[in-house]
């Protein structure tokens, strides 16, 4: 984790920006970025229930990038009244976003299911826990997911 902008952000006039690389072939460290963000939000005294929603939604997105897209990167912007999370990958893309959003739909392979993933609930959780969710996906190119959480 590193602050990506020069501003110290103490006045919160400009959003704080953090950038994370999400390693695609390391399952054991998957979720590290979300855990870091959780810690950051705690330091900033964000309400616990909001922290919970934000960090779970980010974890779901992070895990999806690892499982379905060989990794990617994450940008987190923390402003005075909202948090924006942008998850970007160069994976296979999502051919049918509406279908992918429906509860229970999953293309996760058996070895991933054996770990407890693949319920087809990740994207629905991201939608439920965020105030807005935008999916921008191109087959063969990749996926960008943007979530906004308002304080």
């Amino acid at each position: 984790m590193r602050p990506a902008s020069e501003s110290d952000g103490a006045l919160m006039s400009e959003p704080l920006h953090f950038h994370f690389d999400v390693n695609g072939d390391d399952f054991t460290s998957a979720g590290e970025a979300s855990v870091q963000v959780k810690k950051l939000l705690r330091q900033l005294d964000v309400a616990p229930e909001l922290i919970r929603r934000i960090s779970i939604a980010m974890y779901e997105g992070e895990i999806n990038m690892v499982i379905h897209a060989h990794g990617g990167d994450a940008d987190v912007f923390i402003a005075e009244d909202e948090v924006t999370i942008r998850l970007r990958d160069d994976g296979p893309g999502i051919p049918d976003v509406e279908k992918a959003m429906s509860e229970g739909y999953s293309t996760a392979p058996d070895n991933i299911r054996a770990l407890g993933f693949g319920a087809g609930m990740g994207l629905p959780n991201m939608k439920r826990y965020s105030d807005s969710l935008t999916i921008d996906s191109l087959v063969g190119k990749g996926t960008t997911i943007t979530m906004v959480f308002r304080f």
Partner: peptide
């Protein structure tokens, strides 16, 4: 009955 490392992350995030 799930016992792998992701359980720790989920427990942490779900509080």
């Amino acid at each position: 009955i799930m016992s792998n490392v992701n359980v720790a992350a989920v427990a942490q995030l779900s509080d």
